[in-house]
Computed example of a mutant assay.
Amino acid sequence: MVRWQPGTSERLQAAALDLFASQGYEQTTAAEIAQSVGLTERTFFRHFSDKREVLFHGQQLLVDAFLAGMAAAPDDATPMELVAAALESAAEFFPDERREHSRLRQTVIDQNPALQERERHKLSVLAATVGEALRARGVTEPAATLAAESGATVFGVAFTQWIAPGETRPITQIERAVLAELRGLAAVGPGPAAGD
């Protein structure tokens, strides 16, 4: 049995997602995932620390895509322009052919509270990392945190829309629309001050 062939991680991820969707996340073991693609459980654990990580394996690549977009932005970009650049860069991580996979993955996550918590943690880590990058570019507080949290929120809302049944727009188009909506909300004048 060949254990270290190219694409092993991807094969394990695809098999795991199919098994999670068909028989349930809790009911699926790492050994079953490995056996379904002709591998051993030991091989599974060479690639993933546990079965949950099969669903979250690309998280660092997503963070890196956000950071690459910010790094490529002009030096005089505003905090929200940096966030927009990060969103544009990260959109490349979600081509249209990945949509069905993402829909199925989200279905599995939505059925398990622990996985939902892990997904929220992913967005929290993303916001914290973007915030650090903004501060490194000289953006002060609270602007750095507000922009970073806004960027993570825009991504989360856009992603949810992108995987919605019947949705066909590319994620870049959805991200731009959600970001425009956010900017529109921010443009509305402030409400009464506390104590008024």
Score class of each variant (00 low, 15 high):
Val54Asn: 04
Pro142Arg: 11
Leu123Met: 13
Arg120Ser: 12
Gln60Lys: 13
Ala148Phe: 02
Ala186Pro: 09
Ala180Trp: 09
Arg183Val: 05
Ala186Cys: 13
Thr145Asp: 13
Leu82Ser: 07
Leu123Phe: 15
Gln5Asp: 08
Met80Ala: 02
Thr43His: 04
Ser9Ile: 06
Ser36Pro: 07
Glu32Asp: 03
Thr168Gly: 09
Val2Phe: 13
Thr28Tyr: 10
Pro79Asn: 00
Phe20Met: 04
Gln106Arg: 12
Lys122Gly: 12
Val63Met: 00
Gly131Phe: 04
Glu119Trp: 14
Ala85Leu: 06
Thr28Met: 05
Arg46Thr: 09
Leu87Arg: 01
Arg46Pro: 00
Arg176Ile: 09
Thr168Asp: 13
Arg183Phe: 08
Ala15Glu: 00
Val130Ile: 15
Arg3Thr: 15
Thr43Phe: 05
Ala34Phe: 03
Ala85Gly: 14
Phe44Gln: 03
Glu32Pro: 03
Gln106Ala: 01
Phe155Arg: 00
Thr140Asp: 12
Phe155Glu: 06
Ala84Leu: 07
Leu39Lys: 03
Ala114Arg: 13
Gln27Pro: 10
Ala158Arg: 11
Arg176Gly: 09
Gly156Trp: 02
Ala133Phe: 06
Arg120Leu: 13
Leu17Tyr: 01
Ala177Asn: 10
Glu26Pro: 09
Glu53Phe: 14
Leu87Asn: 04
Pro6Gln: 05
Gln5Lys: 10
Pro113Asp: 00
Ala193Pro: 14
Asp18Met: 05
Met1Arg: 14
Ala31Arg: 14
Gln35Trp: 06
Glu97Pro: 10
Ile33Arg: 02
Gly7Ala: 06
Asn112Lys: 07
Asp75Arg: 15
Ser89Ala: 04
Glu10Thr: 13
Ala186Trp: 14
Ala143Tyr: 12
Gln35Pro: 10
Val188Phe: 12
Thr129Ile: 00
Thr129Tyr: 01
Asp75His: 08
Ala180Leu: 13
Gly138Ala: 00
His101Gly: 08
Ala114Ile: 06
Glu132Leu: 12
Ala143His: 14
Gln111Asp: 12
Asp50Gln: 02
Asp196Trp: 11
Gly58Thr: 08
Ala90Trp: 01
Ile174Phe: 08
Leu19Gly: 07
Arg118Pro: 07
Asp110Ser: 13
Glu97Phe: 12
Val37Cys: 04
Asp64Leu: 08
Val157His: 04
Gly195Ile: 03
Ser102Cys: 15
Val108Gln: 01
Glu132Tyr: 04
Ala86His: 03
Ala136Lys: 03
Thr160Pro: 07
Ala90Leu: 01
Val83Ala: 11
Leu123Pro: 05
Lys51Val: 03
Glu167Asp: 07
Leu19Ala: 10
Thr140Trp: 01
Leu61Arg: 15
Ala144Ile: 08
Arg118Asp: 14
Trp4Tyr: 15
Phe93Cys: 11
Arg137Asp: 05
Leu39His: 02
Thr29Asn: 04
Pro192Val: 11
Ala187Gln: 10
Glu53Ala: 15
Asp75Tyr: 02
Phe93Gln: 09
Val130Thr: 12
Glu26Tyr: 08
Leu67Arg: 03
Gln23Pro: 11
Gln35Asp: 12
Gly24Phe: 01
Ala158Thr: 10
Thr29Asp: 11
Leu146Met: 02
Met80Glu: 06
Gln59Lys: 13
